[in-house]
Nucleic acid binder design. Structure first.
Length: 362
RNA sequence: GGAAGUAUGGUGUAAUGGUAGCACAACAGAUUUUGGUUCUGUUUGUCGUGGUUCGAAUCCACGUACUUCUA
């Protein structure tokens, strides 16, 4: 691709990955504009030093390559859209994935409305690739680094967003990116990767929930014996497959099921209880990134691979359409902690192309 | 109202007169751009008051609390 002829915007976070993106683009003859998306915690006093440091790093990298850097404030959009999504899901008893929605709504959403629309391409530091087939369709493709692969976080973006997205470091492994950063003496070459919900900073997730939803105590029942084990402080503090957070002795206890109406949490006892696993489950609101790969033959089972969380392995499975809304996934092996509300990200059987994602239902 | 039993960290349990140990939880790190999972590490306790003893979680007395049985 002839980047030098195109207007490219880079989302610089202050981390190594997006900094190497800048380096890659520049060395291909491109002169991108850099943007730092600002989204701190809600209260000013909760700003931690890492977000200040992020901006400093981003500024330094842009300057190093003689590029402009603009700060785009998406604070309001984040708290209105991503937080609202998170709270609505969690209140209804689901386990949301804020970072997936952040990519759709903020990095490729709110930013696009504010600035991105002026550009031909938007580059980010995601570990993901794209490829174009004979028909000219653009597909999202996994990274060669299975641990770092971030296609799962991109599996809810719209087709027009994917068309504009480029991932200049997507063909590298993490250590290659680090090497480039060190070789180029980038200021943040050795900086630790960020983790946790991208924009929460140091706020604890449970405190975040408590602030919006408070507490709502209810019963905790042993699903095997039907006996009361104790009380929980609110169903939203627990997710399916979770072990910690209950505070009871005599465990370990794993959360396996929720009854929203009765505000009850069911738990299973033991180190690796069967009831914490599911091999078959349903998903809905299927979102295809490029197209429905089974449009030609909607009936029957199709071999796929999938992930229900950010892990290195893809699970083999078959997928079958149950009705307009719903698909059923039959995994090759039982999966621990299949939590409704999480996205099941669907790949081809070689886990090469990412087809899209759907929300796991109850 | 009687009788018996029990009382050990936040929880569940070991230690029959000799260094209070284990599990779970909690906390902290590691891993992970979601929730989680997993791994490593750390903290916390003998119901109260007396007594016996070189030495008491352990034996004795009283108190307190709980449990069961019985009128």
């Amino acid at each position: 691709m002839h980047y030098e002829l195109l207007k490219v915007a880079v989302l610089l976070s202050g981390g190594v990955d997006s900094s190497v993106v800048v380096h890659e683009l520049v060395s291909m003859g491109c002169e991108p504009d850099c943007f730092y998306i600002k989204i701190g915690p809600e209260e000013e006093e909760e700003w931690d030093c890492t977000s200040e440091e992020d901006l400093e790093m981003a500024t330094a990298v842009a300057r190093r390559y003689g590029l402009t850097l603009q700060v785009i404030d998406c604070h309001k959009e984040y708290w209105e859209q991503v937080t609202r999504y998170t709270m609505e899901k969690v209140k209804a008893g689901f386990t949301p994935n804020p970072d997936v929605m952040c990519n759709r709504l903020i990095k490729f959403g709110a930013f696009h409305e504010k600035k991105g629309h002026e550009y031909d391409l938007i580059a980010t530091g995601h570990y993901a690739q794209t490829e174009v087939d004979e028909e000219g369709r653009k597909w999202l493709v996994t990274s060669p680094d299975p641990v770092k692969d971030q296609t799962d976080f991109l599996a809810q973006i719209y087709d027009w967003q994917l068309k504009k997205a480029i991932f200049p470091i997507g063909h590298y492994q993490k250590d290659e990116v680090r090497e480039i950063a060190e070789r180029e003496h980038l200021i943040n070459a050795k900086r630790k990767d960020s983790q946790g919900i991208c924009f929460l900073g140091k706020i604890n997730y449970n405190d975040y929930l408590r602030r919006y939803l408070g507490e709502k105590p209810g019963l905790v029942i042993d699903i095997e014996t039907g006996k009361k084990v104790g009380m929980h402080k609110g169903l939203w503090f627990h997710t399916i497959g979770q072990r910690h957070g209950l505070g009871f002795g005599g465990g370990p206890w794993f959360a396996v099921k929720k009854n929203i109406k009765k505000n009850m949490l069911f738990v299973s006892h033991g180190y690796d209880p069967k009831t914490a696993y599911k091999q078959t489950f349903k998903v809905h609101d299927m979102h295809f990134l490029t197209m429905d790969p089974w449009a030609e033959m909607p009936e029957g089972k199709h071999d796929i691979t999938f992930k229900i969380r950010h892990t290195a392995e893809h699970m083999h499975a078959t997928i079958e359409r149950v009705d307009e809304e719903t698909y059923e996934i039959k995994a090759e092996k039982p999966i621990h902690g299949v939590a409704p509300g999480q996205f099941c990200v669907i790949y081809d059987s070689q886990h090469h192309r990412c087809y899209g994602s759907a929300e796991i239902t109850v």
